[in-house]
Design a protein around this nucleic acid. Structure first.
Length: 509
DNA sequence: CTTGGCTGACGTCAGCCAAG
DNA sequence: CTTGGCTGACGTCAGCCAAG
């Protein structure tokens, strides 16, 4: 696993594709693939930084970048796009694709502040939550104190189920999870806002100087220990799934009372959760609004606890999403890495075949040199023999006048041949013609051919071979992009070289 | 069947941090 | 300064699963 991850990371570095390019690479032709690499570098930086930022930093800063790279949507980042920026800024696990669970938490905030409308518009999950909220409100019924357990029980079971759903199939299930959770969260917020469960604001109580609300005034016995276990058991609603359904129907009170409803005077309507927690902690449940100091402290403590519970749930959810997102990325990068490796292998194969062809061509070229030399040798010997014969005839002719016409003819022909080969001596006397023949003409012909041919040929072979190799490299580089068409490549370059090589060789002749 | 390990989820606490 | 959100750490519980 680690290796794959590392591979993916390396691949990412090697072929920085950026979120945008990830998918594009797949579509790119091989040529495009490599050519795009340089460009992707910048994107890569942005992307990587963005990635990390998205995970750990405020998203607000990242948004512009995201906007620039729409393709990121295809990636996990799409979540980020969807998720509300502001909220995410607060969360360390901003990745959260959908803020389904977030939405609930947000909804809580919404009660107190109208700021939160922002992100929801774009967030489907939020929409879902909103839709569900009405349900919550409907459910909201000021229930008896015993109701609280019911409240909690429903929530916990929902959570459990919802979480699991989200894990298995995020996209499809998330809504479900949202639905369940919204109930809980919606309870916190929606009710307070809509339902006037709470009474008018109450001034802070001044009676009790309870130093620490930590100690339950009324029933210290319950104290903290009991509180903690009980909550768990409620959440244990997990266990009490049965109760959850019934309880949900029965109890639908919000988890937290609106702050403003805790002020002023009059009857105090606490949420079932608050009441239940107060009882669990051993605190008395206040009914009237002017709260005593101890009551206020206890209520504060309880409320803080409840909020913390919600926050913890949210935090866990985000963390889970974050991890899932990372896993997704790892998976994507792994697949991308494998694809890249496949391409590399193809390119290497193509390169190998091209080199082989180059070697073949080189061998062919060097092979040509040998036959020529042989030819030249044979022609040279023939020429020599002919020269000897001519000399012999000339010598004989000088001694026998009857043969003079023949000798003159021979000299004439020789002069003609010499003149044809070398225009320098168009009119050369018969005798000197022999010198010409022996020295300049014949030798020049053969030697010229040989010297220019063989030596130059060899040198040309080496230099040309190097040149061709370099050309081949460049050619490979330029053509490597079409790795898939390696077969075509292998044949293509071949023909090219065959065409070019003769030209190069002909230059020397 | 029981038992024990593992895992996921939860609630709580404490601490950090930013906003007011 | 206080307040409240967020999160890591801790302990707990429930469910699953393999081993006996």
């Amino acid at each position: 696993m680690m290796e794959s991850i590392l591979d993916s990371l390396t691949a990412e570095k090697l072929y920085p594709s950026g979120g945008t390019n990830l998918l594009d690479l797949e579509e790119l032709s091989d040529g495009d693939f490599l050519t795009n690499v340089p460009f992707s570098g910048e994107q890569m930086d942005d992307f990587s930084s963005e990635l990390f930022n998205s995970f750990f930093d405020d998203h607000i800063l990242e948004r512009p970048l995201l906007a620039d790279r729409p393709s990121l949507l295809h990636m996990d980042m799409d979540m980020d796009m969807e998720s509300s920026p502001d909220i995410q800024a607060e969360h360390s696990y901003s990745l959260s694709e959908d803020s389904a669970p977030q939405s609930p938490a947000l909804s809580i905030k919404m009660d107190h502040e109208s700021e939160f409308e922002w992100s929801f518009s774009q967030d489907l999950s939020a929409i879902l939550v909103k839709q569900e909220e009405p349900d919550v409100g409907q459910r909201l019924d000021p229930q008896p104190l015993e109701g609280p357990p019911l409240i909690l029980s429903p929530a916990p079971p929902h959570r459990g189920s919802s979480w699991k759903h989200t894990e298995h199939s995020q996209d499809d299930v998330k809504p479900v999870a949202i639905k369940d959770e919204p109930r809980e969260f919606g309870q916190y917020l929606s009710p307070p806002s809509d339902d006037a469960l709470q009474l008018p604001p109450t001034p802070p109580s001044s009676n009790h100087g309870d130093s620490d609300g930590s100690l339950p005034p009324s029933s210290p016995h319950l104290a903290l220990p009991p509180s903690s276990p009980q909550p768990q058991q409620r959440p244990g609603g997990r266990a009490s799934s049965s109760s959850s359904s019934s309880s949900t129907a029965i109890s639908s009170s919000p988890l937290l009372t609106a702050p403003h409803k805790l002020q002023g005077s009059g009857p105090l309507m606490l949420t079932e959760e608050e009441k239940r927690t107060l009882v669990a902690e051993g605190y008395p449940v206040p009914n009237k609004l002017p709260l005593t100091k101890s009551e206020e402290k206890a209520l504060k403590r309880v409320r803080r606890k409840i909020k913390n519970k919600i926050s913890a749930q949210e935090s866990r959810r985000k963390k889970k999403e974050y991890v899932e997102c990372l896993e997704k990325k790892v998976e994507n990068y792994t697949s991308e890495n494998s694809d890249l490796w496949r391409k590399v292998e193809n390119l290497e194969t193509a390169n190998r075949s091209l080199l082989q062809q180059l070697q073949k061509l080189q061998s062919l070229i060097s092979g040509k040199v040998v036959p020529r030399s042989c030819k030249m040798a044979s022609t040279q010997t023939g020429t020599c023999l002919m020269m000897m014969a001519v000399c012999f005839v000339l010598v004989l002719g000088s001694f026998s006048p009857c043969l003079s016409p023949l000798s003159s003819f021979l000299t004439h022909t020789s002069s003609l041949s010499s003149s044809s080969s070398s225009s320098q001596s168009p009119s050369s006397p018969p005798v000197p013609s022999a010198d010409l023949y022996t020295t300049s003409q014949v030798r020049s012909r053969s030697l010229l051919f040989y010297n220019e041919g063989a030596p130059l040929e060899e040198s040309s072979v080496t230099s040309e071979g190097e040149r061709l190799q370099s050309e081949a490299r460049s050619h490979i580089q330029t053509s490597r992009y079409t790795a898939d068409a390696q077969s075509n490549q292998t044949t293509g370059p071949n023909s090219d070289w065959r065409e070019t090589k003769p030209e190069g060789v002909s230059e020397f002749f």
